[in-house]
Structure formats: C-alpha cells, structure tokens
Design a protein around this nucleic acid. Structure first.
Lengths: 160, 160
DNA sequence: TCTTATTTGGGCTGGTTTCCCAGTTGCAGT
DNA sequence: ACTGCAACTGGGAAACCAGCCCAAATAAGA
C-alpha cells in the first residue's frame, strides 16, 4: 500500500441483488495488501467508508485510549451515560470485513439500512484521500453540491 | 514544453463512439513532453480542461502536497474528516490521464456526464493560453457570445 | 501529382464487472 | 430432532470495456 499517496478517483458501480459490489482494483491495491482485512465504517449518512485496518486502528485508538485513560483516572465518573453511548456507537459503527474473490464486497446487514441502498441501484465509489467511500448516488450528488464551493477555502485551511 | 508561450488556436473534432478524440499535435507538444501524464479537470460546465501536470501543480498540487506532508507528519490527525472531504472533491474534479497512441484522449466515465457530450458529436478544442480546453460545441458558442464583448476590457485590465 | 503526416474507424485481446446457478448455513416451526 | 424456507457464499460464464494496434481516409506539403 502506497501510504504516501492520496486515494483519488471515482467509479460508478451497481449493487447486485445480494447486496454485493466489486471494488475497483486500483482502490483495493491502494488500500491493502492482498488478503488483508478491511474496516467498513458508517461515518456519514448515505455513505460507507472503507479503511485499511491499521490506519483505522491508529485513528481510533488514539481517541479511545484517551477516554480509557480518563476513566481510569476517575475523571469521567459523572458521565457514565456518555461513555455508554460511546461504547454503543463503537459497536455498530464499524466492522471488519474481507473482500471475496474478484474484489467483491458484500455489504453486511445493518450497513445496508444505513446506506439505504436498494439492490440493483447505482453506487458511486470514490477515493477520499485516506480511505475509499461508497456513496448512494443521490447522496453523492447532494454532498458534492454542498461542498464544492468550499473547495479552495478548505485547501487553504488544511495547507496553511 | 515551451513554458513561455501561450497555447492558442482552435480545432473542431469529433467524439467517436468510444468517447475518444484526438488532440492536435500542436497542442500536445505545447502541453507536455511525449509520454508524460496530463491532468483532466472539470472547471466549467460544458467544458473539460487539459493541463500540464507541473503547471497544474503550481495552481493546486503545491497545496495538496503540503497537506500530504502534514499528514505524514501526523499534524492533521485531528482533522481527518476535512482531509477526507478534500480528497472527495479532488476525486471528482480532476484526474490524471495519459494520451493513447496518435495523441488520442479517451474521456473517462464521470467526465462524460459532466461534458454532456454524446458519441459522434462535434467538439471544439481550443487553446486557453495556459491550458487546452475541450468544449461541447453549443457551450462553446454561447460562451463566446457571452465573453467576446469583454475582450478589449479584459486585455486592458490585464496589461494595464 | 506524389509523398507524408494526421485523423478517424474498427478489430482484437485481456482484464473487469455483472449475472446466474448451486451448495451451504442458519433459523423457525412442527 | 427433522424439515423447509430464506439468506449467504462461492465460483463459473457471459458481457462489457479499455488499451493496443493496424488500416483507410483525409489533409497538408513538396
């Protein structure tokens, strides 16, 4: 996996009647070595994201460990309900998956409802720099409309 | 590539049934050394622009590379969502491509819809000083009608 | 007019993507 | 525990598409 490079590009794919779709080889190669597991995540509505395990763990562990440490230190004693919620979200939000032959991903129950994609519908698979995202087509369009104008500002902000 | 010279001229070309068209040698030579990659960009409706990678770098990649470097250094760990958004926008807006033999460009899926050009339709390929643009014929005409009157003013403004 | 270069059209091939079928697993009801 | 239904998995086959190449047609130049 070429860690340094951004994952970029967009592809249209069709969900088959068994809720499976094939991920472009290009993306699979930038995400993972052959055979490795991937992490499928519910990050934003109308979209599922696909991460390299290690990268995702790094991103997640950083935050979770902090919380854990705080709990140990008794600093979150009064906020048990919130910690519980966090735990609940951690449970449903992500799942380890493995691609089948021909880079085929079968979207698990639970993630289907979240994506709200019907069998036979068109999906957009796009590179999002650090991960790959699978969008319901209409959600993709509206997300673009909303965010394209901010492009330059965002770039300035991140690079500045 | 003659960096100093403006790229000028216009040519009519036909999109074949496989969404391919040949770029005039003259343009290819001013854009790039043989074999180099080019950047295809959705900049304005009805039109795709074709840039030299390095020149595009000046406009944009400089910033993008900065972001990339920052990520490597772990400086954007807390702003992954923004990086993702940036990646998403980069994915749809631009794409690295390579010309096939005979300077033939095949317009990728995704850019076809943006250009809204049917197979067998007429396209205008025009020099735009710093890049080459590929216009749907009708979009070209209306863009001309709109902008020609401003020519003198623009020239004065830029030279003054 | 003849030669050369450019543009356009189409064939072929190998890799992707989609479709289809069969075996398997898991669950529920009897 | 057995049976039947439904969902999931896997693999093969067909369809599709992009890239590579060649050849005809057209334009340009000598």
């Amino acid at each position: 996996m070429a860690q340094a490079d951004f994952i970029l590009g967009e592809f249209k794919r069709k969900l088959d009647e068994r809720y499976r779709l094939s991920i472009p080889t290009e993306f699979v190669e930038s995400l993972t070595e052959q055979g490795e597991e991937l992490i499928l995540v519910k990050e934003r509505p109308g979209c599922l994201s696909l991460w390299n395990s290690n990268q995702w763990q790094g991103k997640l562990d950083a935050g979770v460990n902090l919380v854990r440490a705080k709990i140990e230190a008794g600093k979150l004693a009064g906020r048990v309900a919130e910690v519980q919620l966090l735990g609940r979200l951690l449970s449903t939000r992500q799942r380890q998956i493995k691609l089948a032959a021909k880079n085929r991903l079968s979207i698990p129950e639970g993630f289907r409802e979240f994506l709200k994609a019907e069998p036979d519908s068109e999906l957009m698979i796009t590179g999002a720099a650090v991960c790959v995202e699978i969008w319901r087509h209409d959600a993709w369009l509206s997300s673009l409309e909303e965010n394209i104008p901010q492009f330059q500002g965002l770039l300035d902000q991140l690079s500045g």
